[in-house]
């Protein structure tokens, strides 16, 4: 059972995001970390390979400046190797270009039974990349998985829906995107962190993947400040504040 996991390396979401004033795209020149949304996919892949008893987990990522910090975190969790696409020409790429590039990287990563991605990334959250990768590769896909079990040539997925969940059966190979909370990601052990330093990362450009001209048909024309909401009133609870809430709700005629 070989599983490929798409892992995005993103600016630390705990820090305030910043736009590049010349392009209006998100600044990605600082240190990048493993998107937490993808740590679930890495854990899921490790568990599936472990259950199968053979195979390996390979990572694919597209990130600027040969960034490997996030990949090292996922390698330290137990993934075996990685393909990293790093290319100045891809700065500011749209989701479709990203999907084409990742599909190329998946092709380079070797034979696989399953590709796992996050349902949406923390920084761009278009939520389209996994399904686009599947279409580029001509594969079926199931989004929003909250459980995954592999059974011979098929994968069974409980797919979250707006009203509950669906049970879905899908032929392999396939692309499955997972939600947060699908599994509890492990913390890399000290041994894992040391081992990760020596694991292979195959760093390539778009041209190495046979992707020549890259361009995208969208342009950010301007960025406005949103109208600010008025600051609210702060009331410290003196044990009687519920009366004020009741009064407020009464004023709004909801009680």
């Amino acid at each position: 059972m070989n599983v490929i996991v798409c892992v995005k390396q993103i600016p630390d979401p705990a820090l305030p995001g910043e736009l590049d004033p010349s392009t209006n795209t998100l600044k990605r020149d600082g240190k990048l970390i493993l998107d937490e949304s993808d740590s679930y996919g890495v854990e899921m892949a490790l568990q599936l390979v472990n259950t199968a008893g053979d195979g390996s987990v390979t990572l694919v990522s597209m990130a600027p400046n040969d960034e490997v910090s996030g990949l090292r975190t996922a390698l330290a969790m137990g993934a075996e190797k990685a393909v990293l696409v790093s290319d100045l020409a891809l700065a500011g790429a749209d989701a479709l270009t990203t999907a084409k590039v990742l599909a190329g990287a998946i092709g380079r990563a070797g034979d696989f039974d399953l590709v796992i991605a996050g349902t949406e990334s923390s920084d761009g959250y278009t939520g389209t990349v996994p399904e686009q990768i599947a279409e580029v590769l001509g594969l079926p896909s199931v989004g929003f998985a909250k459980t995954i079990t592999v059974d011979g040539g098929t994968v069974k997925v409980d797919r979250q829906t707006e009203a509950g969940y669906d049970e879905v059966t899908c032929t392999l190979p396939a692309v499955v995107s997972v939600t947060a909370g699908v599994v509890e990601p492990r913390y890399p052990s000290f041994k894992g962190i040391m081992a990760a330093k020596g694991k292979p990362v195959d760093t390539v450009t778009a041209a190495d993947l046979g992707i020549e001209a890259v361009s995208w048909a969208q342009q950010i024309t301007s960025v406005d400040d949103a109208p600010a909401r008025e600051a609210g009133e702060v009331i410290e609870d003196d044990g009687e504040t519920f009366n004020k809430i009741v009064e407020f709700l009464d004023g709004l005629k909801v009680i």
């Binding site: 989701a95 278009t126 399904e131 279409e135």
Partner: peptide
């Protein structure tokens, strides 16, 4: 921008080679 909407849009974007603007 819901499950089915974005799945259909994502597939179509590849078929037609068109970018998507989301959210």
């Amino acid at each position: 921008q819901n499950y089915e909407g974005r799945d259909v849009m994502a597939r179509l974007s590849v078929k037609l080679d068109r970018t998507v603007l989301t959210n």
